[in-house]
Design a binder for these strands. Structure first.
Lengths: 203, 203
DNA sequence: CTGGCTCGTCAACAGCTGTTGGCCTACGCT
DNA sequence: AGCGTAGGCCAACAGCTGTTGACGAGCCAG
């Protein structure tokens, strides 16, 4: 029931076990579901507390305020594969497969995406994940170091765009695409963004 | 001041000119700005009315309720280029150029994207635009008719993903990308999604 | 057994939201 | 000139929001 060691959450330093740990975890999962389904504004503390079958004031006591709850609910570790361990020409496919699996495993990423679009703190959190988790990995695959941020942004645009159309906007054809077909179409794109020579006009 | 004939709005049948047309237009532009900047929930009618320097009750009188205001504010015509008029191997570049220009011209599309993520009506509106404006055009470029929705969804994922990272989340590297570089990187992707043979595994 | 401390509930607050109806003003037609 | 009507403002409503503080129940150490 408690998923404090869910593979998408950052590992926490060992805390003294509290009697309320179960409640805290219940609140967090309820919060993730609500944020993923409704976004920041419409995911009210009262609704989250109702889902968790506790009083709204408990949420405040354990997480301070709504922003603190959100910060605790979307503490994400992408666990991107280390690119040295895979053949250079397959890094695109590996990345796409990893992202699709990550996205379908739980709703933390959907929550983060939905909130990041309308909430400044959510957008900053996404910028942080991008800079601290995607860019460093891209740095070890791209040919030219000074172009790494741009190439990583291109990869992010395609991966987040697919997540947007498939899991948030739910465009029917994007929802119906089988996983293997997503990988087959997107892998070459990501591969090119990461490793292909710069196609730019007069650079 | 009035942009009722803005090139991204659907042309309206000629209405009898009302004395309040200027106010109506002011409300609509203020609504677009607020929806684009804040999303549906945080774009309050009171704030929109304040921007338009009128009373909140006027918004209700002219547009019925908040949903009606939103529907009127994001009545979008993408004006996609007719693909027969361009060489088949340049349709990717033409599309990307068109979308980037569209997106930077005004904030209607940003408003629609921000709202579509947290509001059901907004998401349905995006599905409608996708089905009625993008799919029909794709139908005239793609080799195989029954794969058109999937291919159009792939195009949408890349275009919306770039808009998301650049105009909504504002990932710094995506913001800093010059327009020509976006076109140079994305055009081959879109071209492949539209015209390349199906890369699928065991089809 | 008794103290303190954690867990949890209840009730209430100030503020903001969408929405409504009444009232006044001033334009434009006859 | 007189009058209907459309444009606009004001005040208020019911409901919901995040947040707070007081108060009771039960675990655990001494």
């Amino acid at each position: 029931m408690t998923d404090t060691d869910s593979p998408t959450q950052h590992a926490q330093p060992p805390q003294p076990a509290r009697r309320s740990d179960a409640t805290r975890a219940t609140i967090l999962t309820a919060a993730r579901e609500r944020f993923a389904a409704d976004g920041y504004e419409r995911a009210t503390i009262r609704a989250i507390a109702r889902d968790a079958k506790i009083d709204p004031s408990m949420v405040m006591r354990y997480y301070g305020n709504k922003e603190g709850l959100f910060a605790a609910a979307v503490d994400i570790d992408l666990r991107l594969p280390v690119p040295e361990k895979v053949p250079k020409e397959e890094v695109g496919r590996i990345f796409v497969e990893h992202f699709v699996a990550l996205w379908e495993k739980n709703e933390v990423l959907t929550a983060l995406l939905r909130v990041g679009v309308t909430n400044a703190a959510g957008a900053e959190r996404m910028q942080g994940i991008f800079k601290e988790q995607l860019v460093p990995v891209a740095l070890r695959v791209c040919p030219d170091p000074e172009q790494v941020p741009a190439r990583a942004a291109l990869v992010a645009s395609q991966m987040l765009g697919m997540a947007l159309t498939r899991y948030v906007l739910r465009l029917p054809p994007a929802v119906d695409l089988p996983r293997e077909e997503i990988v087959a179409w997107l892998a070459p794109t990501v591969q090119r963004y990461l490793t292909a020579p710069h196609p730019g006009p007069a650079h």
